[in-house]
Design a protein around this nucleic acid. Structure first.
Lengths: 218, 218
DNA sequence: TTTTAAAATGAGTGAGTACTCACTTTTATT
DNA sequence: AATAAAAGTGAGTACTCACTCATTTTAAAA
């Protein structure tokens, strides 16, 4: 898992049987591209149909509304981005390191993992960031996953590392979460959204970011 | 300065004479509100006119296009946000602290200063964040100010503090800028855009953010 | 090969859209 | 009070929008 992009995954189910018709896949691909380029509201269904090489009516055969098309593209992104924080399959891979190992390795694993995920799904991240303010369904899904899944597990981890003395207990756990997340997400957004064309030494930046967080919370 | 909001400032010149007609001010206010609520592309000029209590034609008497109206609202925000980093008037206030004083005070002054600025201009920040991806004029203005004004001064400061030993010289100066800015801007965006309704202890969060940056870069 | 259902089509529809312009009202100047 | 300029108006214009639906094409089953 995690080696394919989200769009490809949307097209196949767990047994790799085809779920979508070829035209439907074309529609998703085209919509994703244009939404990322010019935003959901400025994108017309006729333009999507054109780029997908499909009649406009075909879009509405598969998606009742333009908004439903958007949600079918963006919704999975929210879950997938948060998955290492709650899906058991990933937890073993990401969280279950040798006992008492400093959290540096954990931090590194998470950052690299999410870095590569976003690298493969830059357009989707852009669309998500743009549209989450305007569509309540996305906000609800985000809150649901964050409050229900990510936050509790995160809190537990931080308390654990605070007890082990790796994180100073002067910091409120919520503040620790905020600082960690803005640093990591801030890096990823800077890297892929704000300055995607800058020449980055990714390995170096990741290592420095880890150092910054470790020092910062000590 | 800095005690009034940007919109009010747009309405008056330096001598506090009125530059805009009352209807024009109403248009700016209404446009700002609705752009922040539902985004530029989803906002119709008829709706702006309605909320402003004005005929639709009046908008186009003052602004040739809907886009010109957007730019007249958002453009000043870019300059104003960056002003403490280059306008001489502000530099004295923000940067010229006692010599050899640790940069903690500088950091605090900048954060509090920009925090309060955004507090008074939350809608404008939201619009700026939403629209900068789609309007080249805004990107150009941003780059111009950042590369020409903010970046050089920032680099100089960081080199200075690195020589003084307050910032570890293991960090590349550009990486330091990135880490500092994502932490500060990440805090402000979390505070006012992502979770504006959360109960924040602003003073506490600001102090912890300063600590995090200081520790992180040492 | 015939039947059946799903997929795809694209001209058509009514509700907007940004913007114009001939005209009226308000304000400033003499 | 007369004149000119600026501000404001709103019906009208050409066009685009998301979405519909009767019809045709494709693909799978019998």
């Amino acid at each position: 898992m995690d080696e394919k992009d989200l769009l490809h995954e949307l097209m196949t189910n767990t047994d790799d049987e085809i779920k979508l018709t070829p035209k439907q896949a074309k529609i998703l691909q085209a919509a994703m591209e244009i939404f990322a380029e010019k935003g959901y509201a400025s994108t017309s269904t006729s333009e999507i149909a054109k780029r997908a090489g499909v009649a406009e009516g075909t879009i509405f055969r598969h998606y009742k509304t333009k908004k439903e098309l958007l949600l079918s593209i963006v919704s999975p992104m929210i879950t997938k981005f948060a998955i290492p924080f709650f899906a058991d399959h990933f937890i073993k891979e990401v969280f279950e390191k040798k006992e008492n190992e400093s959290y540096e390795e954990l931090l590194r694993t998470i950052i690299i993992n999410r870095f590569n995920f976003v690298k493969r799904n830059q357009s989707l991240l852009k669309i998500l960031l743009q549209e989450i303010s305007f569509h309540e369904e996305l906000q609800i899904k985000f809150k649901e996953i964050f409050i229900g899944k990510v936050y509790p597990r995160f809190t537990k981890l931080i308390k654990q590392y605070t007890e082990q003395g790796e994180i100073s207990n002067d910091f409120n756990p919520n503040t620790v979460i905020r600082l960690m997340m803005t640093t990591v997400i801030g890096f990823i957004i800077t890297r892929f959204v704000v300055m995607p064309n800058h020449e980055w030494d990714d390995e170096y930046e990741i290592e420095q970011t880890i150092r910054f967080i470790r020092n910062g919370l000590q």
